[in-house]
């Protein structure tokens, strides 16, 4: 099956925040033969859009998030943010761009269990500064309140899974990212917590006017997205898009 082009987002070329052009990602299989994971001739996502990525396991949803975040480089093509190609930036510059622009939410939360809620939320700030200052602490407390987390001094290891994901969302928001990438953010949660986290994620993304891209199998979460992009099977890497 021939890979198809992804239509442009509603923002149009002028207002696009994220733009993928001719992006291909090839991996080498266990037999040494290369296979194509992603083939995206064109994809544009406007600032503040909420995008869902849907597709079967192994279809390349996570790879697309990694590619957008600059964790992997495309085999060909480019990823641009606000008109600036970020996929070819040197490692240090890409790290800085990711730190400043992106908030990442993982399926398994990936909190630091030995740190408390406050330290987990403020962790990204310690990558660039020695001290987060009083304003940083206040922001962490405000985010925690917004997430319904009462006790900032509790260790992450003693939190429920729902609480952990809320801390992870607060951590992703701490640096005021313009782009939030969430990889199966509700997959590790029970239905009640999944609903709660899905609502929270979309609400806070709207509140801070951030672009949200969620890779998920969760229909309820995807239903909250403005657009859902279908990512095809790895052998064909067909990609389609439909409005949610």
């Amino acid at each position: 099956m021939r890979p198809s082009a992804l239509p442009e987002g509603p923002g149009g070329p002028g207002g696009r925040a994220l733009h993928l052009s001719g992006v291909r990602l090839d991996h080498r299989g266990g037999d040494g033969q290369p296979f194509r994971v992603l083939d995206i001739p064109e994809l544009s996502i406007a600032a503040g859009e909420h995008i869902g990525l849907r597709g079967p396991s192994g279809s390349g949803k996570t790879s697309l998030l990694h590619l957008i975040a600059g964790l992997i480089a495309p085999s060909s093509g480019s990823v641009s943010w606000d008109g600036r190609i970020v996929s070819t930036l040197p490692v240090a510059a890409r790290d800085r761009w990711r730190r400043v622009t992106i908030g990442f939410v993982f399926q398994d939360f990936h909190l630091i269990p030995e740190l408390d809620v406050a330290a987990n939320i403020t962790l990204p700030a310690t990558f660039a500064a020695w001290s987060i200052g009083a304003a940083g602490h206040e922001r962490a407390a405000a985010l925690a309140r917004r997430m319904g987390l009462a006790d900032l001094r509790r260790r992450a290891s003693v939190l429920s899974r729902g609480e952990q994901q809320r801390v992870a969302i607060a951590r992703a928001l701490f640096n005021r990212p313009a782009l939030i990438l969430a990889d199966e953010p509700t997959a590790s949660l029970d239905a009640a917590h999944a609903q709660e986290v899905a609502a929270l994620l979309t609400e806070v993304a709207s509140e801070v006017d951030a672009t949200l891209i969620c890779a998920s199998h969760d229909a309820a979460l995807l239903a909250r997205m403005g657009r859902v992009i279908e990512i095809g099977a790895p052998a064909g890497t067909a990609s389609t898009e439909r409005a949610a």
């Binding site: 990711r98 990442f104 990936h110 962790l123 990204p124």
Partner: peptide, 16 residues
């Protein structure tokens, strides 16, 4: 490695 990869994904420089 996973913990350190998460830090990198969150924007930690390699030097950190």
């Amino acid at each position: 490695q996973r913990r350190y990869a998460v830090l990198r994904a969150l924007g930690a420089p390699r030097a950190y």
